[in-house]
Design a protein around this nucleic acid. Sequence first.
DNA 1: CGACACATGTAACACGTTACATGATTTG
DNA 2: CAAATCATGTAACGTGTTACATGTGTCG
Lengths: 180, 180
Amino acid sequence: MAVREGLLALLDRAPRYGYQLKTDFESVTGGVWPLNVGQVYTTLDRLQRDGFVHAVESDDDGSQRIYELTPAGREELGGWWQTVPRDDPPPRDELMLKVLFAIERGPEQGLQVITRQRTALLALLQSARRTARQSIAAAANELAAQLVADAVVVRAEADLRWLDLCESRISAATNKDVPQ
Amino acid sequence: MAVREGLLALLDRAPRYGYQLKTDFESVTGGVWPLNVGQVYTTLDRLQRDGFVHAVESDDDGSQRIYELTPAGREELGGWWQTVPRDDPPPRDELMLKVLFAIERGPEQGLQVITRQRTALLALLQSARRTARQSIAAAANELAAQLVADAVVVRAEADLRWLDLCESRISAATNKDVPQ
DNA sequence: CGACACATGTAACACGTTACATGATTTG
DNA sequence: CAAATCATGTAACGTGTTACATGTGTCG
């Protein structure tokens, strides 16, 4: 549920054909997410099936199909802007799952995995910070690339903070289990 | 790539049958992620197909199949503990996508969506903080429920921080476009 | 008895993703 | 001419997810 909406958003701005959607999608997202062209066409088929999009054969050149939004598609997109990512149930995050299942194997195992994940995340954070600082003038869409880089940094920081929280909660819990 | 590994982790601790995996999975994750039983069986089939798991018919009762890890499964799981969630390319996050595509429609539209998302996230954060504070004694697995609640809070805070960053970057960019 | 938890499974579908096949057009 | 880019599409597969069908055992 991401490529779908991205294509709708692009088509709402202007009708486009498939290949254009690929390149525009990549440009809007700062060139960080390569999008296989094939996926554009399969997604377009599904959007067509759902009545959110329809194709017009371009007159001058038989090999191009121009896609445009239907009213239903426009409505669907409108809903998306309003929507806030649900979290009930909370998103099944891989890091979270990994730590929870590690803890189930015992406090030491949990702490061990937490330590390993933290080390890796710290390394990631360092490089992400570097990337975010040099405002990536190379990218077609500078602002987007910057924002994505920011997001990576902020996410990594949050994950690290959560890992610290886990560690302290585990200590608290194990100390409580063996009081005096 | 989450249910799969969760089941492997459980089976590594002890052989289990399908229904047990469902309940244990839910308990380990603090009871916040309901897991449809059917999914356990389909996932087990796939794990079996991949040679990570094999089933033994329990002797006493013909209707139960006990699953256990194969050496390959144990190896696969070992790899998982070591692995840190990649982010190259960075995870295609829905909030991120939404904001990027909103910005593409122009700064005002971007700011508008950011504002709406922030409002919703603030509300979510408030209720998440409440949930996290009362340490959820009702849940079977107290620690897990607590950690999940913490994660929701930390994530929401990070998203809010990122939205603020977006806003300031947009302002900076638009001011740069219209210098004097 | 009736409801509920325990227990197993199948069928179908959603989306994401890749690999592959095909051809036109541009450009060095 | 050869290679790269533009352009369209299909087939196949992966995981997640739901709905449905079926049956046993237990407990109020």
